[in-house]
């Protein structure tokens, strides 16, 4: 197993853990955490492929990850604001209990 494969397996593991968490946990915040983990695993893939790719001097992977991190920050901010707004309404963060479209 080479180092590149090591990084890719760590990334795959993170993705799987995030997926499992997002599917099993019932708390909205933890679902968001799972999604963040999946995003991060993709970032790790970008960096690993950039480093072991043909043209590391082009900085493609690094650029992609910088943009991806900033998008993730925006996503987290809006997501958590939504969670707080929903909590104000339903008084719960359990996904199963937020089941009516009509307020």
């Amino acid at each position: 197993m080479t180092t590149l494969q090591g990084y890719l397996i760590v990334s795959a593991l993170l993705f799987a853990v995030g997926l499992a968490g997002a599917l099993t946990r019932r708390n909205v915040i933890l679902v968001l955490v799972g999604i963040e983990l999946m995003l991060n695993s993709a970032n790790l893939n970008f960096i690993a492929f950039w480093r072991y790719g043909e043209h590391p001097e082009l900085l493609t992977g690094v650029m992609f990850v910088i943009f991806s991190i900033s998008i993730a920050a925006a996503e987290a901010a809006v997501g958590l604001a939504l969670i707080i707004a929903v909590y104000r309404h339903y008084k719960t963060t359990n996904l199963d209990q937020m089941d009516s479209l009509k307020g």
Partner: peptide, 18 residues
């Protein structure tokens, strides 16, 4: 994912000079 990573052609990929 890990099977495809392990069996793929990435095994002989080495890091370029940084």
């Amino acid at each position: 994912l890990s099977i495809s990573v392990l069996s793929g052609s990435m095994a002989n990929r080495t890091a370029q000079d940084l």
